[in-house]
Amino acid sequence: MTATDDARRYRIMKAAVVTFARYGYRRTSMEAIAQTADMSRPALYQHFSNKEAVFREATRWALDRSAGNAETAAAAAQTPEARIEAILGVVLALHTPGLESNHFYELIDEVQLRAGDLWSQYEKRIVDAIRDLLVDSVERFDIARSGMDAEDIATVLFFGTKGISLDSHATEHRRRHVRVFVTAVLRGLAAS
């Protein structure tokens, strides 16, 4: 891909995400995506055969960006606990309805229906990153003594964070609950 192709793809993906968030899946048209991307509808059809193809690729793009943000946030943190919390903070943000979308829950349903495989890949990537942090931190966490394996613990941390995201309180309140949750789980794994 050339730099022009990359820029065009970025523009289309960003426009698709914004348009789906604004109108939901059902009310979004190829025309609306093209207008938001500042291109013609025929030009958009040169890249995608239909709305579902755009939606799947926009889902892949958004999830790849979220996973990349989680990995970047983890790399910047100083301790294994802070790295895990950083990853889960990005997960929490992905599961928190934004002000720009009145169609957040509809879009979650559409992702499950039309791109469930991409969602599963995202979940696996995040769980694997948490698992790897746990395994690489044997000096801090005694996973063997816990009687559990790192995959199960990572899965519980991931899905626990998704559950916390359903809390109707403000974002900072949910972030604090994730911090408490991570601390409680990791204290139970602390090496003696």
Rank of each mutant, 00 (worst) to 15 (best):
F159I: 06
S165A: 15
E172Q: 03
A115D: 04
A129M: 08
D117P: 10
T96M: 07
K162V: 14
E172C: 00
D128L: 05
S165V: 09
L92F: 02
M148L: 15
V111Q: 03
R174N: 03
D149T: 11
F158K: 01
V135L: 13
S137Q: 04
L157A: 08
L113E: 14
L107G: 06
S120I: 06
A144S: 14
L99W: 01
R145K: 15
L118C: 01
I130E: 08
L118I: 12
R145F: 05
D152P: 00
R176Q: 06
V135A: 10
R131V: 04
N102R: 07
I153F: 10
L107Y: 02
H103I: 03
A93H: 10
L88Y: 01
G116P: 03
R145H: 11
L157R: 09
E172K: 01
R175F: 00
L92H: 00
R125D: 11
K124P: 02
R174I: 00
S137T: 09
E139D: 12
V91T: 12
R114N: 10
N102L: 05
G147P: 10
R145Y: 09
L134N: 05
T96S: 10
D149A: 12
F158V: 06
W119A: 11
L113M: 13
S146E: 12
A154F: 05
A129V: 08
L157H: 08
T96N: 08
I164A: 00
R140D: 14
G147L: 10
L92S: 06
P97C: 08
L94V: 11
W119S: 11
E110T: 00
V178M: 05
E151C: 03
I87T: 07
N102S: 12
S120G: 02
R174W: 02
I108S: 10
S168Y: 06
V138A: 15
V138F: 04
R145Q: 15
G116L: 09
V111W: 00
L157E: 03
D136S: 15
L113F: 08
V127N: 09
E123W: 00
H103F: 03
Y122I: 01
V111Y: 07
R131C: 06
K124D: 14
G163K: 02
D142Y: 03
R140E: 15
E139F: 02
I130G: 02
V90Q: 10
T161W: 06
A170F: 01
A93R: 10
